[in-house]
Amino acid sequence: MSELPAELLAEFRLAASRALAELRPLVASPNDGSIAALTRIAHQLKGSGGSYGFGALSKSAGLVEKSLAKELPSRLARMVAELEAIVGDLEPGPAPVAPPPPAPAPTAPVQRSILFGEDDPLIVALVKDRLEREGYVVEHRVNGNDVLAAADEISATLIILDAKLPGLDGFDILARLRQTERHARTPIMLLTALTGPQDAVRAFELGANDYVRKPFSPAELLARIKNLTHDR
């Protein structure tokens, strides 16, 4: 059982309930899209189970994900049964503690959330997948104005910006965030198709901590993010 603070456990329970709501109809009536959906949910459970301290669940979900890919439709029933077992693990869930502790325990793991402004759905999928596998929570926005608004609402450990976003572009967002007290020191990375050295210079002059050019390697991106968030 996880030893996380009550707020984080409550948050995990909420995410688990959502996964259950998606799983139940799939289990009841499997269809053509079941494998993809089950793989996605198992993948999410593997990532979130690990980052919230449910090691057994994470491992089990990882095995399900792997077997789903290998043993396609004919073995779907067995896979569904295995997922049911995960659902069973989740349902008792840790009870929420009514009064939240006054201050986080010094050993409590820090939730690493990343705000990601990007309008290319495939890049979003690539980055989200890689980061969520590592336990990061990725908040994604398509429009520059929405990124700026989300930066106020989310306590992001790191912000990744595409330079060419609809609405405000990445450079504008970067400049505005650096003018706020809240994000004066938040690590900000630009992930962009602009390859000219002058664009990188402009980004660093505006206060970017890193500049990654597209096409990119998700593995390298992850290493850079870990470096910026001191997650090595």
Partner: peptide, 13 residues
């Protein structure tokens, strides 16, 4: 059907 598997292959899992 391909998307989650491609992502899983790319991540090495």
């Amino acid at each position: 059907g391909w998307d989650p598997l491609i992502l899983a292959v790319l991540s090495g899992s």
